[in-house]
Measured scan of single mutants.
Amino acid sequence: DDWEIHFNNITIRLHGVSEEQIEELKELIKNGAHEEELRKWAEEVNR
């Protein structure tokens, strides 16, 4: 699925990401992940 997530003036566009991966991302954000951590997560997902 395609997703677009907005938070802290950042837009993250995701393509072909599962519901499970979105839940992981929500947890990262909820736990106060920094932009660098989110980038690493996105790189892993996009492999």
Rank of each mutant, 00 (worst) to 15 (best):
Arg47Phe: 10
Lys30Ala: 12
Gln21Thr: 11
Val45Trp: 13
Ile10Ala: 06
Arg13Tyr: 06
Ile29Thr: 01
Trp3His: 07
Glu35Asn: 05
Gly16Gln: 12
Lys40His: 10
Lys30Arg: 14
Leu28Gly: 00
Glu44Asp: 08
Glu20Met: 09
Glu35Gln: 04
Leu38Arg: 00
Glu4Ala: 03
Trp41Cys: 07
Trp3Arg: 04
Ala33Cys: 11
Thr11Asp: 07
Glu24Gln: 12
Ile12Met: 02
Gln21Leu: 13
Asn9Ser: 11
Leu28Val: 02
His34Ile: 10
Trp41Asn: 03
Ser18Gly: 07
Ile29Lys: 00
Val17Arg: 02
Gln21Ile: 14
Ile10Asp: 04
Glu35Leu: 13
Glu20Asp: 11
Leu14Val: 13
Glu35Tyr: 11
Ile29Cys: 09
Ala42Gln: 07
Leu25Asp: 00
Ile29Trp: 03
Gly16Ile: 12
Glu4Met: 09
Leu38His: 00
Val17Asp: 00
Glu27Gln: 12
Gly32Met: 05
Trp41Glu: 02
Thr11Gln: 01
Glu44Phe: 01
Asn46Asp: 07
Ser18Phe: 04
Trp3Met: 09
Glu20Lys: 12
Gly16Lys: 15
His34Cys: 12
Arg47Gly: 15
Val17Leu: 12
Trp41Asp: 02
Asn9Ala: 07
Phe7Arg: 01
Arg39Ser: 05
Ser18Trp: 04
Phe7Asn: 01
Leu14Phe: 02
Leu38Gly: 00
Gly16Leu: 10
Glu27Leu: 12
Gly16Phe: 12
Arg39Gly: 06
Ile10Glu: 08
Val17Ile: 12
Asn9Ile: 06
Leu25Gln: 00
Glu44Lys: 11
Ile12Thr: 04
Glu35Asp: 07
Asn9Cys: 14
Glu43Leu: 01
Ala42Leu: 15
Ala42His: 04
Ile10Tyr: 00
Ile12Tyr: 00
Val45Gly: 01
Ala42Pro: 03
Ile5Tyr: 08
Glu23Leu: 14
His6Phe: 04
Glu44Tyr: 02
Ala33Gln: 01
Ile5Met: 10
Gly16Tyr: 14
Arg39His: 14
His34Phe: 08
Glu44Trp: 00
Glu24Met: 08
Ala33Leu: 10
Glu37Ser: 08
Phe7Lys: 01
Ala42Gly: 08
Val17Ala: 14
Glu20Gln: 15
His15Val: 12
Asn9His: 09
Asp2Trp: 15
Trp3Asp: 03
Arg13Pro: 02
Val45Asn: 08
Ile10Cys: 12
Gly32Ile: 01
Gln21Val: 13
Ser18Thr: 12
Ile29Glu: 01
Ile5Asn: 02
Asn8Pro: 08
Thr11Trp: 01
Glu36Cys: 08
Asn8Thr: 05
Asn9Glu: 10
Ile22Asp: 00
Ile5Lys: 03
Lys26Cys: 13
Leu38Tyr: 02
Gly32Phe: 03
Asn46Gly: 07
Leu38Pro: 00
